[in-house]
Nucleic acid binder design. Structure first.
Lengths: 221, 221
DNA sequence: TGAAATAATAAGGTTAACCATAACATTTTA
DNA sequence: TAAAATGTTATGGTTAACCTTATTATTTCA
């Protein structure tokens, strides 16, 4: 009790936008991601705009303002620190930590965030591979490409898995598509068909939408 | 996100009632404790009654039903486990842990609660001295008396400090009135005047309302 | 026992964050 | 370039948990 200056809902909108990257996002995409109707998202974006947290260009999309981005980075920091704790210390299943950490993040006072960071040894990345912003909101974005942009035959290492939905994460977990894992792109079916990748000696078919969640690093680069 | 079946508000009402002990509590007391108006508390109690969580006898008070008590014990378990974590592992100041743990408790899924208990080594008491219910909601109530019931000259050990307000807790912390501490009752001023207790070689004056928060164990018993 | 204190209820209001439906505006694309 | 798709706004509605200001009921105690 008595943590939030900004509502949980506000934090979720800002975090979702940050996860989309530093670019204009269609309100409809945001709405999808947050499981609300586009109308609701529109209302909310209007309020966030009035608070100077986002800027919305009609028919173009929304993006975070600097103020909004600062808040978002703080939320991401809390989220990802809790992910580390749940995974490393509580031994909770990889696929579940995103959702569980998400609940905790909104209930976390700054004091707890910083003490947690110290306890965890100021980790740089979360178990899903994403960088953890430092106390000033700074972090080095991952340098990688999405799996669907890799060429056939190439072998790459997974840097991060950016899904947030537990079912999707469970699928990645089952297929061993986890950060650090080496995968080889075997085939890309035509007409937006699935990619076939070789993971740990086994072939896995991945729809393009799923493949977009996977950020990889070429062995060469 | 996606933790609560019962609202945070519901959990707070039930927890507060559990903290009052297994007895009828005046709705006005509850309202005070939760910082809401008696009218609001009445409305809420009515709803909780409809859900079978509490039973209210007009002009007598409210108490938890068995169902309500089970929920409350679960909330207390989460609360107190987080207190242990914040105090023992994150090294957060004793006086602040109640409030910080309170925020976290409502965002904690059963899975996290149990993993946390294991991580902490299934502690039996929280840093404020209160027992932590086990996963079935069972716990042994403390066997002690409140400080204001101790006789003059007696030396006792503090079992628990039941305050929940951070300012009050800070006061106890400053005066070293913490679980495990030995204190001697020196004087009880007349007309509901303060108690004077000897703590760690220093005399401390404690209003009766404050003294009621302190549960102690006689050296003899 | 009757007045004061306390408790309960009634009535009407607020806020945040949703929802649906419908109308209107702009952009994309065939 | 017009129709389809997408995005925006308008309108009105819901829910939970609060609030205030009465009014009414019960209990306590002088």
């Amino acid at each position: 009790m008595t943590v939030p200056q900004l509502s949980e809902s506000t934090e979720m909108y800002l975090k979702a936008m940050a996860e989309f990257g530093n670019r204009d996002v269609a309100i409809a995409r945001l709405a999808e991601r947050l499981s609300v109707t586009p109308v609701s998202a529109n209302e909310m974006i209007k309020k966030l705009g009035e608070q100077g947290l986002v800027s919305h260009t009609p028919y173009k999309g929304v993006n975070l303002t600097e103020k909004g981005r600062n808040v978002a980075c703080d939320v991401l920091r809390r989220q990802r620190l809790w992910e580390v704790f749940l995974y490393e210390h509580l031994k909770i299943e990889w696929a579940k930590i995103y959702e569980l950490a998400c609940s905790l993040e909104h209930a976390t006072a700054p004091e707890v965030t910083e003490a947690l960071a110290v306890f965890l040894g100021n980790p740089k990345t979360c178990p899903r591979g994403n960088p953890i912003p430092d106390e000033n909101g700074e972090f080095t974005p991952l340098d990688g490409v999405i799996l669907s942009d890799v060429s056939i035959g190439e072998t790459v290492t997974i840097l991060a898995v950016n899904a947030t939905n537990t079912d999707v994460l469970t699928y990645f977990q089952d297929k061993k598509l986890l950060p650090g894992q080496e995968v080889t792109l075997v085939e890309a079916a035509p007409m937006q068909g699935p990619l076939t990748v070789l993971v740990d000696g086994r072939e896995v078919a991945l729809g393009l939408l799923l493949a977009e969640f996977v950020l990889v690093k070429s062995k060469s680069s």
